[in-house]
Simulated assay, not measured.
Amino acid sequence: MARIGIYGSSFDPVTNVHLWTASTIAHRCKLDRIIFLPCSNRRKDKRMKTEDHHRWEMLQLAIQGNDKFVADDYEMKQEAWNVYTYYTMNYFKSMYPNDEVFFIMGADLLVDIASGKWGYEEPLVTENRFIVMARDGVDMLKTISSSPLLRNADDGNHFHLVDKGLAMEISSSYIRDEFGKGGEPRYLLPEACYEYIKKHNLYR
């Protein structure tokens, strides 16, 4: 039985923090595989800055050489009405029926689930397991204890809370802004992705 983490994000672009986070989570939570899941540009709650094929190509460049890292374009292929994390987790659990599948997310998204912003929150929480990464300004234990849904699902098995230990929060939006204003974010993302962005004149 393998332990698999589903790591969803826009990856617009993928950053060194994404990779470091995935590596840290894999190590601490004893995961055999991390599946990087770029979100669809059809989602109503997100506005992508880059076409899907560019985000996909950069992600492939970023994870090459690491046998634990794979990418999956499942959500990229979905229509907007079908892009819910609940459906996504059902898909991956059907793909890996004999394995343990976890959804990896930041503590800020835990707050969103508690606030009812995701859709299908109750079956999502009660039927799945989560690895939750600390975020500055978010009290993970308080978020769980103050939500009837989260605290009643918290049986010691649903939520694995991880404090990464370093405040590495450089975002994709920061990198996009640097490129857009003529800055130099070279060492904040994989070198191959940096060169790809320059070659295709992205984020200008």
Rank of each mutant, 00 (worst) to 15 (best):
S172W: 02
L109D: 01
D136N: 08
D67W: 12
I131T: 01
R43V: 00
D67I: 06
K142Y: 09
Y120W: 11
T15Y: 03
G119D: 06
V101R: 00
L189P: 08
W118I: 08
E191C: 06
Q64D: 00
A114C: 11
V101N: 01
K30F: 05
D32C: 06
G137V: 00
A62G: 02
E191T: 11
E79P: 15
Y91A: 09
F69A: 08
V125A: 14
D99L: 03
W56L: 14
G156Q: 14
H160P: 03
T21S: 12
S172K: 12
H53W: 11
L150P: 07
N41H: 12
G182R: 04
G165H: 10
A2D: 03
Y91W: 07
R33C: 08
S115R: 14
A114S: 14
G8S: 05
M89H: 09
A107G: 07
M168H: 09
R151T: 05
H27I: 03
N201D: 01
M168V: 04
R33H: 05
D32T: 04
N157I: 09
A71I: 09
C193N: 04
H18L: 04
F102M: 06
D112M: 06
I144K: 13
F102Y: 10
F179D: 10
P185W: 14
D139W: 12
E184M: 06
L124A: 11
I175L: 12
V132P: 01
L202C: 02
G8A: 02
D112I: 00
R3H: 07
H200P: 06
L110I: 10
H27R: 15
H53L: 14
D12C: 02
E169F: 02
V162Y: 00
H27A: 05
H200D: 03
K199Q: 13
M1H: 08
G137L: 09
L59I: 00
Q60R: 01
R55P: 09
S147T: 07
K181F: 02
T85Y: 12
K199A: 14
D154W: 12
R55Y: 07
I34Q: 02
S40A: 13
L166F: 02
S9K: 05
T24F: 07
G156N: 12
I34G: 05
R55E: 06
L19F: 10
H54C: 13
D32Y: 11
